[in-house]
């Protein structure tokens, strides 16, 4: 088969990069402009006089806006971190059980867990809302974290199951021969080996939780639990849209997941590919 020419390959790479990065650049560009500059015709492809005023409005001072952004930033970190930790603990145990333990209905249960990923998440919104209301968990960290965990657990279990299945079983058997219990084998043998898979699952779960909007919108009712994604949407007025401010808020919300993706991208890729090659 004839190899593609480097030129064509570079063209493809450049196209994908532009496709992905231009919107992000445009958000950054607008966020550094004043309203007048952002609305000028023709558009400014570079900020004429770059200004951090929009970021300053969002982050500093004691204004209601700054307080909202600060509190919702704290909320989103707490909710994402807690959801990630709980998901990891449960998914690790479930994945290990599905990968290594023999029990009746193992395959059916495993595929049932995977099948839940096929359901549109939104179909569960109203029942979850009712359940959380009945348990008094609406507008609480616990309620939001539980919903996140229920949503992300199947994917995390699947990724870790694939990873653990690809580990050599001989090491675990050696542990068993040495008298280690199953939990000791899991803790001292499997988890250290599965660390890359666990890290990638943690990153993927955290990023998924960070991008949530509809569920926290419905399940939170004030700033005590609203994450940054919900607060950013509320900046939009009924008749007036503060474009520069919205873009700055968008860039802020993007900074954390973008940083994680850039620094830890090899873990994300390995997590996604876990188990694909034996």
């Amino acid at each position: 088969m004839k190899q593609r020419t480097p030129l064509l390959r570079w063209f493809g790479i450049a196209f994908i990069l532009l496709w992905s990065l231009v919107p992000l650049y445009w958000a950054l560009n607008i966020s550094l402009q004043t309203d007048a500059q952002a609305g000028s015709k023709p558009s400014n492809y570079l900020p004429p006089t770059p200004s951090l005023d929009n970021y300053s409005s969002l982050l500093t001072g004691g204004t209601d806006l700054a307080q909202s952004v600060q509190q919702s930033s704290v909320n989103i970190f707490i909710e994402c971190a807690a959801a990630t930790v709980v998901t990891l603990v449960l998914a690790t145990l479930a994945a290990y059980a599905f990968a290594r333990m023999q029990f009746k209905g193992r395959r059916v249960l495993f595929y049932a867990v995977l099948a839940t990923m096929a359901f549109p998440a939104y179909t569960t919104l109203i029942p979850l809302y009712q359940i959380l209301t009945n348990f008094g968990l609406v507008n609480t960290y616990t309620g939001i974290v539980l919903v996140y965990v229920s949503g992300f657990l199947p994917l995390a279990t699947w990724i870790l199951h694939n990873y653990m299945s690809s580990l050599p079983i001989a090491l675990e058997e050696a542990g068993n021969i040495d008298g280690a219990s199953r939990m000791q084998v899991l803790w001292h043998v499997v988890l250290p080996l599965a660390r890359p898979g666990i890290i990638s699952t943690a990153i993927i779960t955290f990023l998924f939780a960070w991008g949530q909007f509809l569920f926290p919108l419905v399940l939170s009712s004030d700033l005590s639990t609203q994450p940054l994604t919900v607060v950013i949407a509320s900046l939009q007025g009924r008749h007036l849209v503060p474009y520069t401010l919205l873009n700055a808020a968008g860039v802020l919300a993007l900074a954390v997941p973008a940083g994680i993706a850039l620094i830890l991208n090899r873990y994300i890729v390995s997590g996604m590919l876990a188990g694909s090659v034996k």
Binding site: I126, Q130, T133, V218, R238
Partner: peptide, 26 residues
């Protein structure tokens, strides 16, 4: 009065979700 600011589109979603599930939000 406890005031909750939500953009118009999101507010319609919240009204629908709360009313459909017969739960209180405001």
């Amino acid at each position: 009065v406890k005031w909750s600011t939500i953009d118009w589109d999101s507010l319609q979603t919240k009204i629908a979700a709360a009313s459909t599930s017969n739960t209180y939000f405001a």
